[in-house]
């Protein structure tokens, strides 16, 4: 792939032409916040946190999906983008019952970290306080919908890496929920291989290992990276 040149936040950089803006930025130590994105699985552009401004376009572009182009001028942190990101994170906090202080992922949570990154000091929107269930029918893992942000990392990692497609999404709008099999309790989902990749991929405390208490659920993001690298480079074959 030919190398192209572009500027991100005024910095002139060169990148392979098949890279996304996000990849190019990361390689050049420019930090674009992300949430639904996870290295090793497909990008869906759902959280809208990584939106950037591209000169010449009046639409904001999801940097996780937009390919770099010759001469492209990208702005990743204008005042407008910062404000949008903060609003999106506040909307997420208002949407479900995220209570950091009693969460298994307290201190190891990407949503909590993102709130810090975007400078959220309080939530300006009305909290929704939906009634959400907790499913601990699985022998090792649990899902707490109070903490789910519908990033669908679990759906994608289960489908694309494990190949089981146990997870999917049901309902629409604010009624959307991640489900196992055809909305069966996780413990009875026969397609689940109990590999635990969904738990490691989950950015919050929504998916957790049972027995972990407050602040104990640390996610191992490197597991996924390790698996994908091993698979791509065929490290396990002869």
């Amino acid at each position: 792939m030919n190398s192209i040149t572009l500027t991100i936040d005024g910095k002139l950089i060169s990148a392979p032409g098949d890279q996304t803006i996000l990849e190019a930025a990361r390689e050049n130590d420019i930090h674009i916040p992300t949430l639904c994105n996870l290295e090793g699985i497909s990008a869906v552009g759902a959280c809208r946190v990584c939106l950037v401004e591209v000169s010449g376009s009046n639409r904001l572009a999801p940097s996780c999906l937009t390919k770099v182009a010759e001469g492209m001028q990208v702005q990743t942190a204008t005042d407008r983008l910062r404000e949008y990101r903060k609003m999106i994170v506040e909307l997420l906090f208002a949407e479900r019952n995220h209570i950091c202080s009693v969460c298994v992922a307290n201190g190891n949570c990407e949503l909590q970290d993102l709130a810090v990154t975007v400078g959220m000091d309080h939530v300006r929107y009305e909290y929704q306080y939906p009634s959400c269930s907790v499913d601990v029918t699985h022998k090792e893992f649990g899902v707490d919908h109070n903490r789910c942000i519908l990033c669908t990392r679990c759906v994608r990692v289960c489908d694309e890496v494990e190949g089981a497609h146990t997870w999917d999404v049901s309902g629409r709008g604010m009624q959307s929920r991640v489900i196992t099999d055809l909305n069966q309790p996780w413990g009875t989902a026969t397609s689940c291989t109990s590999c635990g990749k969904c738990v490691q991929a989950c950015p919050t405390g929504a998916l957790f290992r049972q027995g972990s208490t407050v602040a104990e659920m640390k996610k191992d993001r490197e597991l996924l990276d390790f698996l994908m690298t091993a698979r791509e480079k065929k490290q396990w074959i002869g």
Binding site: F93, I99, S101, H122, Y127
Partner: peptide, 19 residues
């Protein structure tokens, strides 16, 4: 000054709201 998470977010005190 909203002092601590309960004042700022409702936090544990607000956990009754979904009921």
């Amino acid at each position: 000054i909203s002092f601590g998470d309960c004042a700022v977010t409702g936090n544990v005190t607000a956990m009754r709201n979904p009921l």
